[in-house]
């Protein structure tokens, strides 16, 4: 019970700060919309049909946006050293990790929805009737993504390489996630039956649950001195 309450407190505080600051949110929104626009602009749609690449491009946009934002998950904590004081309260490290992952997840959903809309419209791909299937794929995918970003975002705050360290650490880990996700989404765009998608979604859930569990167990190693 206490764990849940702590998780909720941290998540609510983070989202509250995020909306009050506004800047980060706005820049991420601009990033995904512009990325979608550029992909649509740069692709020769006579050569490459949008339907064939839209799934991969959406997943990559979400991956890049959340990696770029991962380091900043902890920026508000470090503004004036607040995180040290959070860690000095009885709150469990597990709850801190879960809370920040939840807040990050909410933002990732926003980004995912926006990049999905931006890419399908800029590439002229129709999505009618398959939105539920897309959501069922992105749900576990974004959970895995948010947990990984939160975990390594904390690590990068202590590194003098900062955010440039994040892709090196997270991309090898996220490679299977992006592969499962992009393959599953592509199959939805190709209107394949759910039977040919469900095992990929199960793997995405395995990644999501695994990354949340491992993050919760190991997080104290990246927070405590």
């Amino acid at each position: 019970m206490t764990e849940l309450r702590w998780t909720w407190l941290i998540a609510r505080k983070d989202l509250n700060l995020e909306f009050r600051a506004g800047g980060r949110l706005l820049s991420m929104i601009a990033f995904v919309v512009l990325a979608g626009f550029l992909f649509g602009f740069a692709l020769d749609k006579g050569q490459v049909p949008g339907r064939a690449v839209v799934a991969s491009l959406t997943w990559l946009t979400v991956l890049f946006a959340s990696t770029a934002g991962a380091g900043r998950i902890f920026d508000t904590e470090e503004e004036d050293g607040a995180f040290r004081h959070v860690l000095l309260t009885p709150v469990s490290r597990r709850a801190v990790f879960l809370g920040k992952t939840v807040a990050n997840l909410a933002l990732t959903w926003l980004i995912t929805a926006l990049s999905f809309i931006a890419l399908t419209s800029f590439l002229g791909v129709r999505t009618s009737g398959s939105l539920a299937a897309h959501a069922a794929i992105f749900l576990p995918g974004t959970i895995g993504l948010s947990a990984t970003a939160t975990f390594f975002g904390r690590m990068s705050r202590h590194s003098n390489l900062g955010d440039s360290l994040l892709p090196v650490l997270t991309f090898p880990l996220l490679a299977p996630l992006v592969f499962f996700g992009a393959t599953a989404s592509a199959r939805v765009f190709m209107a394949l039956p759910w039977d040919e998608i469900s095992s990929l979604v199960r793997l995405l859930w395995a990644f999501a649950i695994g990354s949340v569990a491992v993050g919760a167990v190991l997080f104290h190693h990246v927070t405590d001195e």
Binding site: F151, M155, H158, S159, N160, L161, L165, V168, L169, P172, L173, V214, L218, H221, V222, E225
Partner: peptide, 25 residues
């Protein structure tokens, strides 16, 4: 990543711990 993390953290003990986490994950 293992070596980049180790080398780029100011507190060596923390760097070692981070690197270990990277290897395990």
């Amino acid at each position: 990543g293992y070596f980049l993390v180790r080398g780029s953290v100011a507190d060596p003990r923390r760097g070692k711990r981070f690197a270990a986490v990277v290897a395990i994950v």
